[in-house]
Design a protein around this nucleic acid. Structure first.
Lengths: 343, 343
DNA sequence: TTGAAAGCGCTAACAA
DNA sequence: TTGTTAGCGCTTTCAA
């Protein structure tokens, strides 16, 4: 310990922290001794125990990393979050979400990793075991796109209204046979057409709200197709099925841009022209350079801003106040993939 | 503290840890008291200080998150890493890499976050300030695709040999006018054609090795184009430029699949047929569903396995041994984007 | 301006 | 089988 080498004990702390009064000469002496002994500043573990703070924000990804991170949506939110937290001197600890039926309900890190606040990304319900565990531990939580509960704020977007505007856009173009491709309903992550019973059992709020938005506009859906994840290939599967129907839809609304671009690919594959034969719309507002020359008709959501909002909520929690839930606005962006319904 | 409520002090520790002898009745009593008081297991901060271990592995991303994570290559490696570390009870702390000329050289987390081991992803050189900082702190380091130094192991692939095989494949197909699109040369992240002086100054070893591989096969490159990041749009930029030359190359080798797919898009845009008019090849072996109906000719590298190998190196370091550097094999995969040179 | 002492919560060694 | 004690490294009173 530098103290032994120099001359003091707690003085060394002052030398490093800069807080408190200290003679320039002593500080220099301490720092010199430290570098001699190969001591490089206070041990974070000691500081953490003393302060009761780890400086760590646990981020529970709502899925296996490999899947979550293939989705630019999660990435952009995470990016905004990391930026915001970085300024506050906080680090992000990645915590895998439940990876499937076989795996344990919550990752061990949720049970026992040190963290000052936790963020649950994507689809937490009030009875989410992850949420329950964190509350038991007394770790304050911020939800992203989850259902706000007593004492737990959520950051989300107005996806229901956004979807309604998008659906109205298609109605205005004369479309009447409209099908939709949805995000997952729940952990089960099934794939295929859904019936009324299944529709009534949607657990994930995002999926539910976006579906409700379509109905709000007065659309009577020709078919609803559930996917296991927001990935291009699942969108393509759905597109192949929906566009092969004898009463082929004239428009397909997907609940994400990745799903929508899969539908576009499926349409091209089937020799259908977009938008002359079929219109396709998505949700998110991603930049998809490889879809060129098409640009997707979509609802743009502020992904970075979402991350920033979560970061701000975290900051509030650490400051001891209870943050408000936030609903960010979205906006219709008409691209080249939607056009008048074929007559 | 549960101790007060129950009857003991360190007995409580035994009750929770399960290690050491304890009467079933006392354990139950302690656990009951704990749940009554809302105490939920040992505070990780205390345990960490006591054990000297944080259970955290810092992963320094070689770039801004938003860019790194748009690259499936990083994601898949990270996925393999998180899986491996999860089993060991270790968590991954995300640390942004240097984000550009303006920003500070190293993220504050590198200076002072608690971590047992650090992983530097992507392109660390022996004089990397991040590496220097970590060594000063005494944090053991594993490099991914960096240059191994004394006491610092690196995990990488045999990209030079892989590139040579790929280049030979093109030569075998009769190609003689071959251009290449490279990964970044250094922090500067420039875009455009490079001259000999610039070629001699490549800092990032991956870029250097893959370029060397092409030359190993005996290819005399028509042009070398540098990109600022491995992203589709940069590949498209490069493709547009290279394929607009009067002496248009008959084949373009890109140092990554994302860059290569950008080149394919540029070719389509220019009305060139792939591979009849121009062959395109990449590196990585990604699954690119949206490139359909084409599948890229590429060099497949074991991305997940890379993450696992890094995880194993971390494990070795924590066990006190010095891991060996690892070079994983790669393999040529011929797709539909390469064919005989046009006559 | 510096030093001494206490205590954050934990576990491991030892004693009872 | 349980309790006592010490100490991980730090920062923050408080006293000198």
């Amino acid at each position: 310990m530098a103290a032994t080498a120099g001359v003091s004990v707690s003085t060394a702390s002052l030398a490093f922290s800069g807080a408190g009064p200290i003679a320039a000469t002593t500080r220099d002496r301490v720092l010199a001794a430290a570098s001699e002994l190969g001591y490089s500043g206070p041990n974070p573990l000691g500081r953490q125990l003393r302060s009761g703070r780890s400086g760590i924000v646990g981020v529970v990804i709502g899925d296996a990393l490999r899947r979550s991170f293939r989705d630019p949506v999660s990435i952009q939110v995470l990016d905004g979050l990391v930026d915001t937290l970085g300024v506050l001197g906080l680090g992000v600890l990645l915590i895998p979400g439940s990876t499937g039926p076989g795996a344990p309900l919550v990752d061990p890190l949720v049970e026992s990793a040190a963290m000052d606040v936790a963020v649950i990304m994507w689809g937490s319900t009030p009875h989410d075991p992850v949420l329950t565990t964190l509350r038991r531990r007394g770790v304050p939580v911020v939800l992203l796109e989850g259902q706000a509960t007593e004492g737990v704020a959520a950051v989300g977007i107005d996806d229901r209204a956004g979807m309604a505007v998008l659906a109205q856009h298609l109605l205005d173009l004369g479309h009447r046979r409209i099908a939709t491709v949805t995000l997952p309903f729940d952990q089960a992550r099934r794939s295929g057409p859904v019936d009324d019973a299944r529709l009534a059992a949607i657990e994930w709020q995002v999926t539910r709200r976006r579906l409700a938005g379509v109905r709000d506009a007065g659309v009577d859906l020709l078919e609803t197709w559930e996917t296991p994840a927001s990935l291009v290939e699942h969108g393509a599967d759905a597109g192949r099925a929906l566009l092969s129907r004898p009463d082929r839809p004239t428009a397909v609304v997907a609940q994400s841009d990745l799903l929508a671009s899969g539908v576009v690919l499926a349409a091209r594959e089937l020799g259908l022209r977009v938008p002359q034969d079929v219109s396709v719309a998505g949700f998110d507002g991603l930049d998809l350079p490889w879809l060129a020359p098409d640009s997707l008709t979509t609802v743009v959501q502020p992904l970075q801003a979402k991350g920033v909002a979560v970061g701000n909520a975290v900051e509030a929690l650490l400051a001891g106040s209870q943050p408000e839930s936030v609903v960010l606005p979205v906006e219709l962006r008409v691209g080249t993939t939607s056009g008048p319904a074929p007559s």
